[in-house]
Simulated assay, not measured.
Amino acid sequence: MDEDKEESEINLTPMLDVVFIMLIFFIVTAVFVREPGVDIERPAAVTAVDPGGGSIFIAVTANNEIWIDRREIDIPGAKSQIERLSSENPEAGIIIQADGQARNEVLIAVMDAAKEAGIADITIAAGD
């Protein structure tokens, strides 16, 4: 009788191994969108287009604060943050979400930091 019971059991270990491997695969290959961490009033543009793809978002507020990955940073620290995020996603471009009241000097400093970090694909986001 014990022999019949042992033969009728299903071994679930291989199935669980496959499920965990698939879970790890989907977690590793998922593209995570990193938002800058603040809301920005972007100026409108008639010719705005959606760049698509995975991107690194940088926000410049009306108070000329720079936000990357939900953290406020200063201009000298922008390059190192961009390099860090670019190493995590080498295919990503930069999307700068600048407030309409932000100073051009800060926007240009962020663009320079991105270029110094080796990013050539830089986009300035416009409102709807």
Rank of each mutant, 00 (worst) to 15 (best):
I124K: 08
A59Y: 01
F26V: 11
V49G: 08
I96K: 05
G118R: 03
D4F: 15
A117Q: 04
E35R: 13
V46A: 15
G37R: 10
S55Y: 04
T47E: 09
F26C: 09
E91I: 07
V46N: 13
Q97R: 10
N64V: 00
K5F: 14
M15W: 14
V46R: 09
G52E: 07
M1A: 15
V33I: 10
D39R: 13
M15K: 15
M22L: 12
A109P: 03
V110R: 03
F25E: 12
E116W: 00
D121H: 05
P36H: 04
R84D: 08
G54F: 03
I27S: 08
K115P: 00
I27R: 08
T13K: 07
I75W: 01
E91Y: 03
S8M: 05
G37I: 06
T61A: 05
G127T: 06
I27D: 08
Q97A: 07
I96Q: 04
E88Q: 13
N11L: 13
G37E: 11
N89S: 14
V106N: 03
A92C: 07
I108L: 05
A120D: 09
R34A: 06
N64T: 02
I122Y: 02
D112Q: 13
E3Q: 14
E3T: 11
I68V: 08
K5H: 13
G118S: 03
G93N: 09
E7I: 12
D74C: 01
T29Y: 07
Q97Y: 11
E72F: 02
V28W: 07
D121Q: 09
A109D: 05
T13G: 01
G53N: 12
M22I: 10
G127K: 07
M1T: 13
N89Y: 09
W67E: 05
K115D: 02
N64W: 03
V60W: 00
E88R: 12
G52Q: 08
A44I: 12
T123F: 04
I124M: 08
A62K: 09
G52P: 00
V38R: 03
G54E: 14
I56M: 11
I122D: 01
F57W: 11
I75H: 03
I124E: 04
P14D: 05
M1R: 15
A125D: 11
I95K: 08
N64Y: 01
I21T: 14
M111F: 04
A109C: 06
I119A: 08
F57L: 10
T29D: 06
A109K: 02
M22H: 05
I56N: 04
G52D: 03
I95T: 06
E116T: 09
E83D: 13
I27W: 07
T47D: 12
E41T: 14
P43D: 11
V46S: 13
N63L: 12
I75C: 01
F26S: 10
E88I: 07
I96C: 02
I68F: 01
N63M: 13
N63F: 08
Q101N: 15
K5I: 13
